[in-house]
């Protein structure tokens, strides 16, 4: 297992399309619910324990070798918003392209053939981690971190928030992020015996509802 490969995969500059998505932050900013570092932290914490936990468990399960189609269906069931399902598939497809160029492997090629329109991004993330020689814990950490780093970066652009404050938010969330990743891996290990029902299904009503409203805006900076 290579620690450096984890840095490559988790790098915010990894060219997989994430920069165009705010993880719901743009809608929350417009609704006046994110106004600065404190509310950004609260937003990120809520996202981490809901969408982040689910994404981390899906990624860990994929890294452990669970059937991608089953995981993709489980992701669908845990993503009621069609706007978020579409965004997750689009990002999954972009990540798969980047991962195949970075860590060529027959496994990733097979996934590209199986999901021509893209699989949910966390599932692809787990498969990419596997192709990079990483384990379920790495995949879970990556997914959990992305669930908060995306909104933090977007908020820097949307509110001209001090980037040091935004980075401080991420650092303060680190211990919780570790716990989320651990519990995601624990759930993912149960998938082999219990099926995908063992995966967490934590949901955030406002993220889902606001994603639909955001998708209908005529003018926006971020795709989701």
């Amino acid at each position: 297992m290579s620690r450096a490969a984890l840095l490559v995969l988790a790098d915010g500059r990894f060219p997989a399309g994430g920069h165009a998505h705010s993880g719901g932050a743009e809608a929350a900013v417009k609704a006046g619910r994110i106004t600065g570092a404190a509310s950004l932290e609260d937003f990120c914490r809520g996202r981490l324990h809901t969408a982040g936990l689910v994404a981390a468990a899906l990624a860990a399960a994929a890294a452990l070798g669970a059937d991608p189609a089953g995981l993709d269906a489980a992701a669908d069931a845990r993503t009621p918003s069609p706007a978020l399902r579409a965004a997750a598939r689009r990002l999954g497809r972009q990540l798969l392209r980047a991962a195949r160029a970075t860590w060529p492997s027959p496994g990733l090629d097979a996934v590209a053939r199986q999901f021509p329109k893209g699989a949910h991004q966390p599932v692809v993330l787990g498969l990419a981690a596997r192709a990079a020689g990483l384990g379920p814990g790495d995949a879970a950490h990556c997914a959990a971190y992305e669930s908060v780093s995306g909104p933090a970066t977007a908020t820097v652009r949307l509110l001209s928030l001090d980037p040091f404050d935004a980075t401080g938010v991420l650092a303060r969330l680190a211990p919780e992020l570790d716990r989320v990743a651990d519990s995601a891996v624990e759930a993912a290990r149960r998938v082999a015996d219990e099926g995908t029902d063992a995966l967490p299904a934590a949901s955030a009503p406002l993220l889902e509802v606001m994603a639909e409203a955001h998708a209908a805006w005529p003018v926006r900076l971020f795709a989701s």
């Binding site: 500059r13 399309g17 920069h19 165009a20 980047a98 926006r220 971020f222 795709a223």
Partner: peptide, 16 residues
Amino acid sequence: ETGACPHTAIRDDISA
């Protein structure tokens, strides 16, 4: 859609 960074979408992260 470029997330407020059009140059990123054509140069640094061309995936979309």
